[in-house]
Amino acid sequence: MNATARCPGSCGELIQGFVAGRECLVSCTVNLFSEVTLEEVSYFCKEQGPKKSREALTKSFEFFGLSAEDTYNIEIKVNSSIPAGKGMASSTADIVATIRASALLVGKEIDHAEVASMAVSIEPTDSVLFPGLTLFDHLEGSIIEPLGSAPPLDVLVLEPYETLDTLKFRETDYSEVKRKNQDKIEYALWLLKEGIRTQNSLLVGEAATISSIVNEEVLQKPKLRSIIDCAKKAGAVGVNVAHSGTVIGILIDNAYTDAERVKRLLKREGLLKEFGRVYLCKVLV
């Protein structure tokens, strides 16, 4: 018996920071996926597979009233196109896909809030698990606010060579810096909501750009201001970042420009040297 499920990754976040006194985020979900297959086998494989997926499998079985021992002969296979260590929700996608595959394997149903609660108990979790853009308290899971679907957007992913150990990064407490910028993030959230309500990509892009600039006080990105200026000149609607990662995204509405034009101008200005890969994704929600 086996079961397969998948979860998308992200190109960082559209916004992240304090909202009404709690740190929240809205992931920039893209068409990169982690696919997890669980298969019952005849041999013992308690330690097999990624550690976080194994933990998610165990927690899932316990949630469904089964024992941890019932997972010992279940093999985990992860097939992911999401780069790791860049702030692209690779761990969240692995965990969430494992939880969903676990439910399928045992013939149970589980809703998004239950998946979120389980995932947050393992590590801070991106909002890619939800079916639309969602404001999410990624640390405790206490806030889940569906926002709706973004207007059609592409994102030019600027993926650097460098990775970031997210858990180690979170050992430093940046809450005071983030709390200081709460008004800016709440304004960005208002712009994002208006952009979604009116399907105005310019407002969505402006919200993301504000949040990316605010985050420079927490985690700087090389030449971010120059990238923002260049992207705007090329007709992009905005720039977003991984707030606890290294990736940068250029948000593109094809009504205004196209990815090749943006990429050409960035290259001409010498702004792509820091990045190992530059490629196009679609914003999924």
Rank of each mutant, 00 (worst) to 15 (best):
I122F: 05
I122L: 10
I122N: 04
E123V: 08
E123T: 07
E123D: 12
P124D: 10
D126R: 06
D126A: 10
D126E: 02
D126H: 02
L129I: 07
L129V: 06
L129Q: 00
F130P: 00
G132Q: 12
G132H: 07
G132F: 07
L133M: 15
T134Q: 03
L135M: 10
L135V: 01
F136Q: 04
F136D: 06
D137K: 11
D137M: 14
D137L: 11
H138V: 06
L139Q: 10
L139M: 11
L139A: 09
E140T: 14
G141P: 10
G141W: 03
G141M: 12
S142C: 08
S142I: 08
S142D: 13
I143A: 06
I143N: 08
I144V: 15
I144A: 14
E145N: 04
E145F: 04
P146K: 01
P146I: 00
L147Q: 10
L147M: 13
G148W: 13
S149Y: 13
S149K: 15
S149R: 14
S149E: 14
A150Q: 12
A150W: 09
P151Y: 12
P151H: 13
P151E: 09
P152C: 11
P152K: 15
P152Y: 11
L153E: 03
L153G: 02
L153Y: 04
D154C: 05
D154R: 11
V155F: 01
V155S: 01
V155W: 01
L156W: 08
L156T: 11
L156I: 11
L156G: 09
L156P: 10
V157R: 00
V157W: 00
L158F: 04
L158N: 01
L158S: 03
E159V: 00
E159C: 05
P160H: 09
P160L: 10
Y161P: 01
E162C: 06
T163D: 05
T163V: 10
T163L: 02
T163K: 05
L164I: 15
L164E: 11
L164S: 11
D165F: 07
D165P: 06
T166N: 05
L167E: 15
L167A: 15
K168S: 15
K168N: 14
F169E: 01
F169V: 03
F169T: 07
F169L: 00
R170D: 03
E171C: 10
T172F: 07
D173M: 07
Y174Q: 04
E176P: 00
E176V: 05
V177M: 11
V177N: 08
K178F: 07
K178I: 15
K178S: 04
R179E: 15
R179P: 06
